[in-house]
Design a protein around this nucleic acid. Structure first.
Length: 515
RNA sequence: GACCUGGUAGCUCAGCAGGUAGAGCACCUGACUUUUAAUCAGGGGGUCGCGGGUCCGAAUCCCGCCCGGGUCACCA
């Protein structure tokens, strides 16, 4: 398959000129790909350290930094430009009477080059902290033109397929992924301070469990057997609890072979944590504490804006029973009313029932009203039918001690007092098998080893799962899950427009268009 | 999977009652020692997503396909 890549000629010409220039540098005894550079300051270090000097003030503080050359502004015998690194941009200034090898800079340093600079810090007349470059070193000269400096990259396809290009062009993108990294680190620090152990559980599994989802299938050559990629970490983490770990968690990728949308991605990251001797009330408090901790550390307040909507994380968060909320909004009692009533209410909202099961109908009823919940809200006490791993409520055996955290109409977390009665657990699995027979491909598989583990005895335990991607979306005001996954799933690219190695003798070069 | 919408220079976009392609940035040449979307002068650069059809003539109209995006369905 050949996909036309547009102006290959222009790209080729640009690349050839660059390669020639690089060869020229080698001829001058300059290594165009040097091995390292001693960087003493990041762009941020310099900006913050010198933010208080006066306009026009020149310090004698030396700094050394490095990054990509952006926004080059040549003025003949001097040049302003910016150096971009992980933390943003810092302005730099080279001038003929202050910078070693100024002519080389003028001749060879251009937009997109990666360079190291060393010099003293001053503040320009217009008030920007700037490095007056005394020495510089070329560290890499790209073979491709840089994206547009003002508009950046907007083409969603380039954005997802070539995230590196977007990161070069769009500073906010680097910042967003830095925040993602910060958030995950802060979660680890928070849990570590509470005595949780981070553990790891298998991704390749003979059977999946812990969630309702269709798995990916792969193949293990050594045993010539098909395997699944995990859809949740739950059942193995609880085995840790059985084994004697009181507090464990895992942050990891899980895989669900389902639809792709602005809030769904086939591989995504979750954190699941389990705490022995805790129930769902304890976990609710922990969840509130964890998330408000993140919001406060990131924004210094408990209120943030997501897609123009203020989200207020001030504790305590609203708590509402699933039954009450649905009854209020739809007039249906999910515990008392008949299946026939469910069907008629769903039909009046144009919802068809594909699997004739009470639990499924209740989930569809909930879907109708989920959007109404904007502020952080704990939705409580899901019916037993739709919660095969949760303990029944101590007050009403028709419902479970479970909560979902809903924010902006989205499920952000799911938690319960974990079912630790092995006989009950076995029966729940059997009921899931019944659903499979009804055609529910997402129903859970029987995991006899897990039941066996419970038979050894699991202490009362509270568990929590959070979708990290959705949390990061919320905390970075990103509308699409792909905005927070650096390399999201895209269809395979037909052809990549890199330069192929050609024979020297064949320069007339019919460029291969053959498929 | 259905419907809607898009694909024109490396990037951001214009051109679409059919007459054979344009701007800005980037690149190359030149001028300019506090600029910040620097400025000024000149230059090169395009299988207008791919294939087929209608037509004297297609970026523009028609059909099919490929690759995006949005909405819905399934799901977190």
């Amino acid at each position: 398959m050949v996909i036309c890549t547009g102006g290959i000629i222009l790209l080729k010409k640009f690349r050839e000129e660059r390669i020639k220039e690089i060869e020229g540098l080698r001829a001058l005894g300059i290594n165009p790909y040097p091995y390292s550079y001693k960087k003493t300051h990041t762009s941020e270090d310099i900006r913050t350290q010198f933010q208080n000097i006066a306009n026009g003030e020149v310090t004698n503080e030396r700094v050394s930094t490095a990054g990509r050359v952006m926004a080059l502004r040549e003025h003949g015998k001097s040049t302003f430009f910016h150096i971009k690194d992980t933390f943003g941009r810092i302005q730099a200034y080279v001038r003929k009477d202050r910078t070693e090898n100024y002519e080389f800079f003028k001749e060879h340093i251009t937009l997109g080059d990666i360079i190291g600079i060393e010099g003293i810090v001053f503040k320009s007349n217009t008030g920007e902290v700037t490095v007056l470059v005394e020495k510089f070193q070329l560290l890499n000269k790209p073979l491709r033109p840089m994206p547009e400096k003002w508009h950046g990259i907007k083409d969603r396809e380039i954005l997802y397929r070539q995230r590196y290009a977007e990161m070069i062009a769009n500073d906010e993108t680097v910042k967003r992924f830095r925040m993602r990294s910060d958030i995950i680190r802060m979660i680890r620090e928070f849990l570590s301070s509470k005595g949780f152990f981070e553990v790891e559980t298998p991704i390749l599994q003979y059977q999946t469990g812990g969630a309702s989802a269709r798995p990916f299938i792969t193949h293990l050559n050594a045993l010539d057997i098909d395997m699944y990629l995990r859809i949740a970490t739950e059942l193995h983490l609880k085995r840790f609890i059985v084994g004697g770990f009181d507090k464990v968690y895992e942050i990891g990728r899980i895989f669900r072979n389902e639809g792709i949308s602005y809030k769904h991605h086939p591989e995504f990251t979750t954190i699941e944590l389990y705490q022995a001797y805790a129930d769902y009330e304890d976990i609710m408090n922990l969840t509130e504490e964890l998330i408000t901790h993140l919001v406060e550390k990131l924004y210094g307040t408990t209120k943030i804006t997501y897609q123009g909507q203020e989200i207020d994380f001030t504790r305590p968060w609203k708590r509402v029973k699933m039954r009450d909320f649905i009854k209020e909004n739809l007039g249906v009692d999910i515990l008392e009313d008949s299946n026939e009533k469910f069907v008629s209410v769903l039909a009046s909202h144009d919802v068809e029932i594909d699997i004739n099961d009470r639990g499924h109908m209740i989930e569809k009823l909930w879907d109708l009203v989920e959007d109404k919940v904007l502020q952080p809200t704990f939705l409580l006490e899901h019916p037993v039918e739709i919660s095969p791993l949760a303990k029944k409520s101590r007050d009403d055996s028709r419902v479970t001690e479970r909560f979902e955290l809903i924010i902006y109409g989205r499920e952000m977390a799911n938690a319960f007092s974990e079912l630790n009665d092995p006989v009950d657990q076995y029966e729940r699995f059997v009921n899931q098998l019944r659903l499979r027979d009804l055609g529910d491909e997402e129903a859970q598989m029987m995991d006899k080893d897990f039941v066996r583990a419970l038979e050894y005895g699991m202490p009362p335990t509270g568990g929590l799962g959070i979708g990290i991607d959705r949390l990061v979306m919320l905390l970075t005001d990103s509308p699409n899950i792909r905005d927070v996954i650096a390399f999201p799933l895209v269809r395979p690219e037909g052809d990549v427009d890199i330069e192929e190695i050609e024979d020297d003798g064949n320069d007339s070069g019919e460029r291969g268009e053959q498929a």
